[in-house]
Design a protein around this nucleic acid. Structure first.
Lengths: 368, 368
DNA sequence: GGTCTCTGTGAATCAACTT
DNA sequence: CAAGTTGATTCACAGAGAC
């Protein structure tokens, strides 16, 4: 088996072939994100693995045991996840998705392979298929697992981007939106749906925006009709897809070809917000205002109007020692560590103004 | 070890002792439902997590949640689940719950023990603990698995009860409601929370209403402060609890002692609705009386004489949204779901008449 | 008594960098 | 590598207290 030594040659290509076989050819520590929507195990009684869309998955035909073909599915899962661990960069992330049929197999094996789980996400479908016979609760969710290579991984999480996309509140682990339908849903030449389980682009958008940076490489070993590739291109990321079904590959290539990457302006609004206002810039700015004698004070005050000497390095001086504005709270509050931004005030003409408010004012007036 | 041969002697008692040891004493095929909220094996870091105001966050750091390894946790899980399989009646149901820390272990083992999964449920918390440091998505869900002894089990599912509780639409697999807090949350003598992970009664209510019949026996091997017992008593079911912590047992006994079972009238409305009479017939009849101008009102009133607009579909309109008479009580009673029939009044010439009484009148005069 | 403000808190695998 | 330093970070409720 020939190893591709240059990951760049695979960028933005769909590899036609068996997932496991092709994974083995990809260089180690070469991709930033892996998204995997693997075939799931349907107990057909015949011991055959099926994709969730009912197509046969070829390449596994082994023993049976007391666990039935769960064991077969587990072995398959271990193999491709082991390859993924090799291929992923040390600080990269992996996402897998599934339903109760397979998600426990996935999660169990992920944990046994010493991956480190960051979040479990519930995708709540707004328009699930009803339960026609009224025998159980409507299956209205699918589950995702976001995990990394080790506990010490420094993975990407675009916290502010997510917060911004959620009405300026922290994004949560339950995501609610519709299944893929309408124009987004690919049709074959007869007008029938091309793929039974095409994922909504919105799902991939959120995953990619949350856990990758611009120009990152995203691998999808079960590429299907190429939702991952389409969204990656749209958001200025690179993709690598592996797919065994030649018809899917054909449609996926055409689909991705037609995708337009978003404009830089739009892009900055959803993505760059993380780095736009670097708080570290703000504090020296306050100090400069003091230096330039625009804020006529040398002291910070707490709510009891106790004062502390502020030096031109932005430090609080107490008994000839320097402290950060945060650390200094410990000395004024009997060892209680508080956020200095919300503790200290500056006195301006008999008015006491929280330095956090000043910071925000600067942020608005001078950095936009 | 002595086996209790008569399950009736255990009914509505809390057994003080080790879960696994006590499970072994319970007769085979003797209970209708098992609800298990086992330790989650959280593996929190050694550090202290501070809130932004400098206070420490007090999470779960209990001895009962500590295990040496996944292997140890898995062995523990296999043992108690194996006992549960023996104890459960052939057509009984089991519910377990957890988070990503343990739910994959549970699901994997459940499937390996040849249980049959019916649904995976996501409990979406409306008010989860935020992520204090902005490091990942807010963990706002817990996961439940509902499963039975075999594929051929004829388990109880009160389909219409569930539908009725969900505005006459099929109940789905994502359940949204708050964590346990306020008066419901048990406090110790110092006013601190008694148990770090007390579950909301609403959660148990839904499980018990969905998957048991009146007078069924419900076993909870990790009884804690007795939420399962309290709700069982309230809904005219029997419970058996096992709990190792003597303080929890003391509080749980007192708690359950104070629970009043709901009145038969209310009970019939939430539970027997499956068969007693079809609400669809009765309710339109009231609407017709309004349409025909025999009931001269467009409003329903609660006992505080707050009014709600009733439209001709029989729905209550609030801010352009439609609600069932039951669902609307949540908005008037701070999230408390009540039986709308016994909550809303119609005003007739300065007299307020409960709509349930009107319904019964119709029922007697026109439908008998 | 009603309304507003302030405070407390919940199953958490919760940082990054320098010395 | 361990210890110390700097600095970034929260939402929905309930309940108490103020006005």
């Amino acid at each position: 088996m020939k190893m591709n030594t240059d990951i760049n040659k695979l960028k933005n290509k769909i590899i036609l072939g068996d997932s496991l076989k092709e994974l083995k050819k990809i260089p180690s520590k070469s991709v930033d994100l892996i998204f995997a929507d693997p075939p799931y195990f349907m107990q057909t009684g015949a011991g055959i693995l099926y994709r969730i869309d009912g197509n046969k998955y070829k390449g596994v035909n082994d023993e049976w045991d007391k666990f039935g073909s769960y064991k077969e599915y587990d072995n398959f899962t271990k193999k491709w996840l082991t390859q993924c661990k090799r291929i992923l960069k040390d600080n990269g992330s992996i996402w897998v998705m599934g339903t109760f049929h397979n998600i426990y197999r996935l999660g169990y094996i992920i944990q046994n392979l010493n991956f480190w789980v960051i979040n479990d996400i519930t995708w709540e479908k707004t328009n699930p298929t009803p339960n026609f016979r009224g025998t159980k609760f409507v299956n209205s969710n699918e589950n995702l697992i976001w995990f990394v290579k080790s506990k010490n991984s420094k993975f990407t999480f675009n916290y502010k981007t997510m917060k911004n996309l959620n009405d300026n509140k922290q994004m949560r682990s339950v995501w609610k939106f519709p299944i893929c339908s309408g124009k987004e849903r690919l049709k074959d030449h007869d007008g029938n749906k091309l793929h039974n389980t095409q994922k909504p682009e919105k799902l991939l958008e959120r995953i990619i925006l949350a856990t990758t940076k611009r120009n990152d490489i995203i691998l999808d070993p079960f590429f299907g009709t190429g939702t991952t590739g389409a969204v990656a291109k749209k958001l200025h990321r690179n993709f690598i897809g592996i797919e065994n079904n030649i018809e899917y590959v054909k449609y996926a290539n055409e689909r991705i070809h037609n995708v337009k990457s978003i404009q830089d302006d739009d892009y900055s609004l959803i993505d760059h917000i993380n780095s736009k206002f670097d708080q570290k810039i703000i504090y020296p700015k306050i100090i400069n205002l003091i230096k330039e004698n625009k804020l006529k004070t040398k002291y910070l005050y707490n709510s009891r109007k106790e004062k502390a000497l502020l030096n031109l390095e932005g430090k609080i001086e107490i008994n000839k020692n320097e402290y950060s504005i945060h650390k200094a709270t410990e000395l004024f509050e009997n060892g209680r560590y508080l956020n200095g931004w919300r503790y200290w005030y500056i006195k301006i003409e008999d008015n006491y103004i929280l330095i956090d408010d000043i910071r925000k004012g600067i942020n608005q007036s001078e950095f936009k």
